[in-house]
Computed example of a mutant assay.
Amino acid sequence: MYQEERLVSIMDFLQKHNRISVEQICTIFDVSRDTARRDLVRLEEDKAIVRTRGGAILPSVHDEVKSYSKRLNFVTEEKQVIGIKAASLIYPGDRVILDASTTVQACAEQIKNMDCTIITNSINQAEVLSSNQEINIQLLGGTLQQEHRFLYGSTVIEKLSDYHVDKVFIGVVGISEKGLTIAHEEDGLVKRKMIQQSKQVIVLADHTKLGHTDFFRFADLQDVDLLITDQTPSKEFRELLYKNNVELLTADLEEGDE
């Protein structure tokens, strides 16, 4: 077998098993240890692997976090039905915090025009709600993160300390045994304070976020009261929620057709 053929087969093995040892390469392809090492050196030069002591693993892959406007172009039907379900939990007289995520914006778009108070650090959420004359909107002032369209910083966190609300709706990049995670620390610090100021913490996350862990942890699972998602999670994930006293609410896709 030529080296190029071996390299393809080694990558196929890694895709299935995540790691491979020099001994495994020798056994599978009937080659010497020197040949196996040369194969790994070649793959490393091509940035296809990360060499470890005695073998190799696949490099970590980090999903690009698209800008807010680009993410809005990919607001899925799943997010829309989650938003409908979440909005149905807001009642007249409620005092509510909405964070700056596209899934929470799907909730904002469904909130009825009623006498309630909405606090947010998202210029998009404030704009969406501005046509509802009955809603009292409190936009938190701070430093504008232009690409992702949220306000952050010490002034936002200090102002949040003055509010005590009934519910907070939080979006995440990942929710797992590691807790609630997000891509940007400055966003996560604001979300953390929002959670501290609310009686009920409601997380909105479509099925792709479940079991995923991103860069910055801003809360633990035990901080969450309710998770709204679009598909029934795996048994293992449901057990994780139960262990942390998180209530689960699954939105019905048919609701989005009403």
Rank of each mutant, 00 (worst) to 15 (best):
P233V: 09
S101C: 11
A56V: 09
A183Y: 15
L180W: 12
T27Q: 14
D12H: 02
F169Q: 02
F74I: 11
K159E: 05
T117A: 13
Q125N: 15
Q105V: 11
D206A: 06
T27L: 11
Q125C: 13
A86S: 09
Q24R: 13
V22C: 02
T232F: 14
S176D: 10
K167H: 11
R51K: 12
G141Q: 06
L180M: 08
A183M: 12
I20N: 05
E186L: 06
E239M: 07
V168W: 02
D252A: 00
F169L: 05
D46C: 01
S67Y: 08
Q133N: 15
K193W: 00
Q125L: 09
D94T: 09
A48E: 06
D30P: 01
Q110N: 15
T229E: 05
E23R: 01
P59G: 06
K209F: 13
I157A: 06
F216K: 05
S9G: 03
V173H: 13
D187M: 02
N121F: 00
G211L: 13
S32H: 06
D99G: 03
Q80V: 03
Y152Q: 05
S67K: 10
R53A: 04
Q200C: 07
S176P: 08
D162L: 14
C107D: 12
V172W: 12
E186G: 01
K85S: 02
V168G: 02
G142M: 03
Y2R: 07
Q80I: 07
K199P: 00
V81K: 00
Y152W: 14
I119W: 03
K167I: 04
H184E: 13
Q146M: 12
R238M: 14
F218A: 04
G188V: 06
V61P: 05
A48K: 14
F218Q: 03
K167C: 06
M1A: 09
Y242H: 15
V190E: 00
Q200A: 05
Q24W: 04
L140T: 05
V22D: 01
V31I: 15
K191S: 03
A100K: 00
L241H: 10
I84Q: 01
I25D: 09
D225A: 04
Q80H: 08
G179V: 03
H62W: 08
K112A: 14
R192S: 13
L89C: 11
D220G: 07
G174N: 05
F216M: 11
V190Y: 01
I228M: 07
V165S: 09
L89Y: 07
I111T: 08
E78I: 00
T27H: 09
G142E: 00
T208Y: 15
L144T: 00
D230G: 11
R38G: 03
D39N: 07
